[in-house]
Amino acid sequence: MPASRRVDIAAPLLKWYDRHHRSLPWRSPPGAAPMEPYRVWLSEIMLQQTTVPAVIPYFTKFLARWPSVHDLAAAPVEDVMEAWAGLGYYARARNLHKCARAVSEKLGGVFPDSVEGLLELPGIGAYTAAAIAAIAFDKPAAVMDGNIERVLARVFAIETPLPQAKPELRRLAESVTPQKRPGDFAQGMMDLGATICTPKNPDCPLCPLRKSCVAQERGSAAELPRKAAKAARPVRHTIAFLLQRDDGAVLLRRRPPQGLLGGMLEVPSAPWRDSPWRNGDALSHAPAAIDWQEAAGAAEHVFTHFALKITALHGRVDARAAAEIDGQWQQPGDAALPTVMKKMLGLLPAGDDVRSTRNPRRGRARS
């Protein structure tokens, strides 16, 4: 694309953003002083791999509970993890707390105003550093999220599939980012991708960049960006142990601090492995030696790199026996759990829809 067409992007985009911007709780109005860095940082961490509608209630809840970076830093990490439950990608929550502590304890509560300084903080990568620098400090940093990738791929008609096209798209982002109002420009590009230049059926007639968009001229906007074929997602299997007290409370445990869902509450389960479990084999991982019953139905949860297929065994104990079992007891509806664990609890049997599976120490189990 000729260089003369590249410089046309910022002006029409900002003009459109001034009129059609989304009003979001972590944003200042167009042209106004930037929102405080703590709010920008918190929102950007939450928005990684998560949609705006899903983030808004979490952002509001976090801000009410921890209104400053010092408040968040002082909170127990377990409280932060539980408040994050349901938002996914739980390493982000652990790094959120680590970053808050670093800013509070080492930097006096002041976030760095440069991409380089922000990159030194836990949990802040290239995209997040650029977004915070641009939006909170109005630095001309080139921001690149999925929406912006899509807009640029169409405007410049980039045929190289993602992710191979990312370096080229980043160079283009750097070339079009203006020196003035770079934060509004980044947010305008995000809004354009979210509302008009959408993945399917882009509304090209309403797009402020239509006169500069090569893909629109060629009639190929809906086909871009191209994506390389994905490998099949591996499948893992587990059996959840749904153990209830007489009052209906379920047994939960705390996962180790490191690894997938680290530090979160979990439903006890057999190790997640590549091959399906036989009930009799899985019982060696049960949290108690009782008569387990096979719950009807199954569930599935898709993580980034694999899918987890879940079946369940159900059991009941009285209060005296429950007191001897390691873990904590909570009513199913009260527990702050990751989505995958909520799906496990969704297999709790209704009525008598179970089949007996005895513990091997008390008899042979059915598989």
Results as ranks from 00 to 15, higher is better:
98 K>S: 06
22 R>Y: 08
342 K>F: 03
260 L>G: 09
226 R>Q: 14
215 A>R: 04
37 P>E: 09
164 Q>A: 15
318 D>Q: 00
52 V>L: 12
206 L>K: 06
18 D>M: 08
345 L>M: 07
334 D>E: 05
204 C>M: 10
283 L>E: 05
223 E>K: 12
352 D>W: 03
128 T>V: 15
303 F>Q: 14
328 Q>H: 14
157 A>E: 11
41 W>K: 02
244 Q>P: 08
149 E>H: 13
157 A>Q: 02
7 V>T: 03
242 L>D: 10
129 A>T: 15
361 R>F: 13
258 Q>A: 11
24 L>I: 08
328 Q>W: 07
365 A>Q: 13
362 R>I: 13
33 A>P: 14
41 W>I: 07
102 A>C: 06
314 H>E: 03
192 L>M: 06
187 Q>L: 14
251 L>V: 01
143 V>C: 01
12 P>H: 12
194 A>H: 05
290 I>D: 06
180 K>N: 11
155 V>F: 09
271 P>Y: 08
28 S>E: 08
358 R>G: 13
48 Q>R: 04
320 R>A: 14
224 L>R: 07
197 C>D: 00
44 E>V: 12
364 R>D: 07
175 S>A: 03
246 D>A: 15
23 S>F: 01
12 P>V: 12
353 D>I: 12
270 A>K: 02
84 W>G: 05
18 D>S: 10
317 V>T: 02
267 V>C: 10
310 I>S: 07
182 P>T: 11
16 W>D: 02
122 P>K: 06
7 V>M: 03
241 F>D: 07
113 D>W: 07
216 Q>F: 15
357 T>S: 15
347 L>I: 00
137 F>Y: 03
252 L>T: 02
178 P>G: 04
315 G>V: 05
53 P>N: 13
116 E>Y: 10
208 P>F: 11
181 R>N: 00
81 M>R: 10
91 A>V: 04
160 T>L: 15
220 S>D: 02
101 R>N: 08
277 W>N: 13
108 G>V: 10
229 A>G: 12
342 K>T: 14
326 D>I: 05
199 P>A: 00
352 D>F: 02
115 V>S: 12
353 D>H: 15
195 T>R: 07
106 K>H: 13
248 G>H: 04
114 S>Y: 03
140 P>H: 04
97 H>N: 07
330 Q>L: 15
311 T>G: 14
162 L>G: 11
144 M>W: 03
365 A>T: 07
367 S>C: 06
300 E>F: 04
304 T>Y: 05
228 A>L: 13
294 E>V: 13
29 P>M: 00
301 H>E: 14
334 D>V: 02
216 Q>C: 14
361 R>L: 14
88 G>C: 04
208 P>H: 12
255 R>H: 04
128 T>S: 15
257 P>G: 14
58 Y>A: 04
93 A>I: 00
298 A>I: 09
223 E>Q: 06
134 A>M: 08
150 R>C: 03
44 E>C: 10
67 P>M: 12
